[in-house]
Amino acid sequence: MIEIRDLDFRYGEGDFALRVPELVVERGERVALIGPSGSGKTTLLHLIAGIALPRAGRIATDGVALPDLDDAARREFRIRRIGLVFQEFELLEYLSVLDNILLPCRISPALPLNAAARERAVALAHGVGIGEKLDRMAERLSQGEKQRVAVCRALLVAPGLILADEPTGNLDPDNKERVLDILIERAQQSGATLITVTHDRDLLERFERVIDFRELLS
């Protein structure tokens, strides 16, 4: 469960400010977050993930207030409990598909890179239809394939919370459906909470709840 109350965030001394009076997302809920560009949707995801820290207010994920943790604990929580999917995929072009999926294990000592992790990565890749391309370099994949790799990377640890920032923004209609299918299916299977930022109104019916960011901030 995600619980936000009286959240106040500001980028340095800049003009941009984000104030969220209240938001509660139940565990296992599938939520779409819509709103105009630049309104702070991505920032909210960063706050939920503990990537950005609020100036005031409460934000808790499964009862854990990430701003209250030290940096290492926050990172460990994030890597163990939260799966992140980005609009631009953010794959490392110099790594293979398998290495990209296993990247969280390579970059954090909290996740050991062992046989179990490899097996899970391979299973995830097969599950989203890229199992035959495990050794292919990321740069040689299509856009849809890249996003599927990014989804596999986010799901490697079977997170309780999946935060997807416009995961279908760069995809053609077929791939949009497919990637969203994967995300929703995996979230349902593991009982994970899914919060997706999207501009694509055709996809909104796939979510249990749609939050308009303008209403959220008012």
């Binding site: 990247l103 969280p104 970059i107 954090s108």
Partner: peptide
């Protein structure tokens, strides 16, 4: 910079990056 940010976002420490 973006790639390094990604490493950090997905859980890598600044020192690991």
């Amino acid at each position: 910079r973006r790639e390094l940010e990604t490493l950090w976002k997905i859980g890598g420490s600044r020192s690991a990056v």
